[in-house]
Amino acid sequence: MEYELSSPNVLYVTTYSRIRDQIRQDILNSVFKPGVRLRISELTNRYGVSQMPIREALQQLQGEGLVTLLPQKGASVRKIDENFLSNMYDIRYAIETMLVRTGVEHMTDRDLKEIDLLQEEYEAYVSNRNREAALLVNEAFHRKINGLANNYEAIEIIDRHWGLIDVLRRQFGFSEGRIHSIIDDHRKIVNALKRRDRDLSVRLTGEHVMKAKIDLIERFKQSQR
């Protein structure tokens, strides 16, 4: 069902997404310290919205692992540390390697063309130093590959962390040389997919995720020094 731009449904989703992103950013910027209670009444005053988008945002942030929701106790901020980041990428490793293993069997020539075009678009944005656009296209590249397996439950788990990963990348950046390493990894993955080499595609995907994990943790540790 399609809605007009002024539809209450669209406005609600826009408000909820904006509030979720603002709370997430405030947590990562230590406005809300680890262990702090996130009271609905205080959040509605802070962000100038009703309780409903606040509650929806907290549910989403619980799925990302940033917030803990307990009966009778409400929401509290979870500590972001090296262990949290490591666990997040380990989950991504397990699911993405599973998805690409299955996805190779269902991949069409049209899928390959779309993946190839997304990689070319990513490289163009990197070359133009458009980091925001590059992050979005990088996400689209991985979503396309992950979607080949038609396992929507698994994709939903990964999707919970994409927004958080993008925010962390904006905040901590990349180690020197990592951007070019990403391009090289993507090219190798695309070539393996074109050959329909399932085992190689799985191995390269796993290595790519682990490199991202090591890089982000290192950048995080540097920010804590």
Rank of each mutant, 00 (worst) to 15 (best):
R39N: 13
I40C: 07
E42Y: 02
L43F: 05
N45L: 15
Y47R: 02
V49W: 04
S50L: 02
Q51W: 06
Q51M: 11
P53M: 00
I54F: 06
E56S: 10
E56T: 09
E56F: 10
A57H: 03
A57F: 04
Q59M: 05
Q60D: 15
Q60G: 13
E64G: 11
E64Q: 12
G65A: 11
T68C: 13
L69Y: 06
L70D: 13
L70A: 14
P71A: 09
K73I: 04
K73A: 07
K73F: 08
S76R: 06
R78S: 05
R78W: 00
K79R: 10
K79Y: 06
K79Q: 08
I80K: 01
E82P: 06
N83V: 14
F84E: 12
L85F: 00
S86H: 13
M88Y: 05
Y89K: 04
D90T: 05
I91R: 05
I91S: 05
R92P: 02
A94W: 05
A94Y: 04
A94T: 05
M98L: 12
L99S: 00
L99T: 00
V100Q: 01
V100H: 00
R101V: 00
T102V: 09
T102A: 12
G103K: 00
G103P: 04
V104H: 04
H106P: 02
M107A: 06
M107N: 07
T108P: 02
T108H: 10
D109N: 11
R110Y: 14
D111Y: 01
K113D: 15
K113F: 14
I115A: 10
D116I: 04
L117Y: 09
L117Q: 15
E121V: 10
E121H: 12
Y122W: 10
Y122T: 14
Y122P: 08
E123G: 04
E123R: 12
E123T: 08
A124I: 12
A124K: 14
A124D: 15
N130V: 02
N130G: 03
E132D: 15
E132T: 14
E132Q: 15
A133R: 10
A133F: 10
A133H: 03
A134C: 10
L135A: 06
L135V: 02
N138M: 11
N138Q: 12
N138S: 13
K144F: 00
I145H: 03
I145P: 03
N146W: 07
G147V: 02
L148W: 03
L148H: 01
A149M: 01
N150F: 07
N150W: 03
N150E: 09
N151T: 01
Y152F: 09
I155Y: 07
E156C: 14
D159C: 08
D159P: 05
R160D: 15
W162R: 12
W162P: 05
G163V: 09
G163N: 11
G163A: 11
L164H: 02
I165K: 07
D166K: 15
V167I: 14
R169D: 11
Q171W: 01
Q171N: 08
Q171S: 08
Q171V: 04
G173V: 01
G173E: 04
F174D: 06
S175L: 11
S175P: 02
E176N: 06
E176S: 13
E176M: 12
E176A: 11
G177E: 07
G177A: 09
G177W: 05
R178P: 00
I179A: 11
I179D: 07
I179Y: 08
I179M: 12
H180T: 15
S181V: 07
I182R: 07
